[in-house]
Write a protein that binds this DNA or RNA. Structure first.
Lengths: 338, 338
DNA sequence: TTGAAAGCGCTAACAA
DNA sequence: TTGTTAGCGCTTTCAA
């Protein structure tokens, strides 16, 4: 029971209220739910008794009797990194407006059994539906383990079939960003990518497409981790290569690391090398130089995903995909090739 | 019910399993819970039936019958900002290890009634306990509205009486940080603070104490918001004041803003002005100049808070306060007064 | 408008 | 080891 047991042990139940108010249990229930009319006199007595006893109905009992649970679960490979955290915020805010509580579960992709445990933990609760953040391999793995009979929506950066999906069209945005760099006179653009959710991310695909479209050479992809510091060491290596004049990083934090590494190696941005990121991290505009990047509305994305899930829960028809369009933001870190 | 109703409407219940397996309902329950021995033959029949029907027991019914709910709720004034997100991560990771699911609710401090709604939403669920992030006024407001009979732990940067608390001893750390600046030869240290949770934060108190202790003058506090950009405009103003040689910012993001603003105004860090932050944000060491700051182990803090809550839930004795000690990290943004 | 009775899906107590 | 009988705390019939 959610109500705590006072000092005395047993917690207050609806019967206690009924007794104190001198009415039957169903009458108290009627006052609680407003499902049927109750005489003013009794209603008042009941309300007084509820106050006196500090009674709160048992959520478990209510859930059992009929009502849909008012909770949804979110799976995410990370909870504190910018894009993830913002998406979760968007989900939570719109869920709360509809009277749903949000649970979060972080899933580590490496250990199989721990992943199963996490899924079981969630499935063991009464939940109305699930949203999976599929930005990384962990999200993909979770989705595979979820029973089909539970309402599920996924969020990711690549269009896929399967459950309904809230989509950030990253590929198109990346393509525009690379075009911007090419327009600046760079022969090609090198790509430092973050761990991809599948074989290839939308960001990487967009980069590749843009280069192909312009007939530019496609350099091998450089793999970074999630930590900005991994970008730094890559930047240091890149500093030694005079052929590198433009770098597209998988996200802003990696871009910041790369810029720092480039500086360590004596190369200046954007004078010697242009570096662009992705996401429009809150610190991107403050960075020196301010980052050219792609603004992603993660909160809106989360909100859309919840909207789809709610439709599913309520048995209404849902779009199989809803798309949020990112925008290129040009700042100081990209410039003409010299 | 957490189990979805298949195409047919009604969802699978324990009775269906019993019928298919040709045993009684309690026998199914026994294999489910492992509470009592069941003959190998029947156990196997039951397990097969469970698989066949894809049966998952109703969490609501289980919660009702006896078991403590396996979910805790977290209230936070923010969910995506670094310190908050990390704390939540720490809570979630250790909760999951103990088999608890974590729900998060963001509370905005401004609107009273929305705050009540948020609290009601949580209290309407079956939860085992609550953790309140009391880094800001919203957290304080929530704590006031929580019934006494629910297990509650708070997390904050200032020692207080009331519910058990996980404490970041910010005041002591701030004091050390200011001492570091004073040792560098600065006459005094100016303070740009983030919105305080109460009248005064531990960070501000530590700053004040350090100055007092050394007999330094105490300049008026400068108020910033949560956004790094608010630090930037403050930095621009500070650039015009030659008397300002050292600045202590309420967190790293504000410090980054202030440094950028100072640069906009033509003052260099740390040559002209030393600027220090608080938290050791992941980007602090990458910033140019790398930030002198205080490392806070938010995840550990969250983990400790959950530990206290678990003790409360299990009826074990709990420390009224558990303290995490932050460390000063000296990098490049602080230097001798010239 | 109200109360008595039934039942939500499960587990625990009690016999056999 | 198993089945029968009672509940958990609520809401929802169904009569009155």
């Amino acid at each position: 029971m959610s109500a705590g047991e006072g000092a005395r042990g047993r917690s207050i139940v609806i019967g206690d209220v009924a007794r104190l108010a001198g009415v039957s249990v169903p009458t108290v229930s009627r006052v609680l739910t407003g499902a049927a009319r109750v005489s003013d006199e009794k209603r008042e007595r009941v309300e007084r008794a509820i106050k006196t006893l500090n009674f709160r109905p048992s959520a478990a009992a209510r859930a059992l009797v009929a009502r849909q649970p008012k909770m949804i679960a979110v799976f995410a490979g990370d909870t504190s990194r910018y894009g993830y955290a913002e998406t979760i915020r968007g989900i939570e805010e719109s869920a709360r407006k509809s009277g749903y509580l949000v649970s979060i579960t972080k899933v580590e992709d490496n250990a199989e059994d721990r992943l199963d445990d996490a899924v079981d933990l969630v499935l063991g609760q009464s939940i109305a539906g699930i949203i999976v953040l599929k930005f990384d391999p962990a999200g993909v793995a979770v989705l595979k383990r979820l029973p089909e009979d539970i309402h599920t929506v996924s969020i990711s950066g690549v269009r896929e079939k399967g459950v309904p999906q809230a989509l950030l069209s990253e590929s198109a945005a990346a393509q525009k960003l690379i075009a911007h760099l090419l327009d600046l006179g760079h022969d090609t653009v090198h790509h430092v990518r973050i761990p991809p959710s599948r074989r290839e991310d939308g960001r990487t695909t967009g980069w590749r497409n843009a280069l192909k479209l312009r007939g530019a050479s496609i350099p091998p992809v450089i793999d970074a981790g999630w930590e900005p510091s991994s970008g730094r060491s890559i930047g240091t290596e890149l500093a030694a290569r005079p052929d590198v004049t433009a770098v597209f990083c998988g996200n802003d934090e990696i871009a910041m690391g790369v810029i720092r590494g480039l500086a360590d190696g004596g190369r200046r941005v954007p004078h010697d090398v242009s570096v662009v990121g992705f996401d429009d991290h809150p610190l991107a505009e403050l960075w020196v130089p301010a980052l050219t990047t792609v603004r992603q509305d993660f909160a809106e994305l989360g909100s859309r995903a919840f909207g789809q899930l709610l439709s599913l829960i309520q048995g209404r028809p849902t779009a199989s995909v809803t798309t949020v369009e990112p925008n290129v933001v040009v700042r100081e870190s990209s410039g003409p090739r010299v």
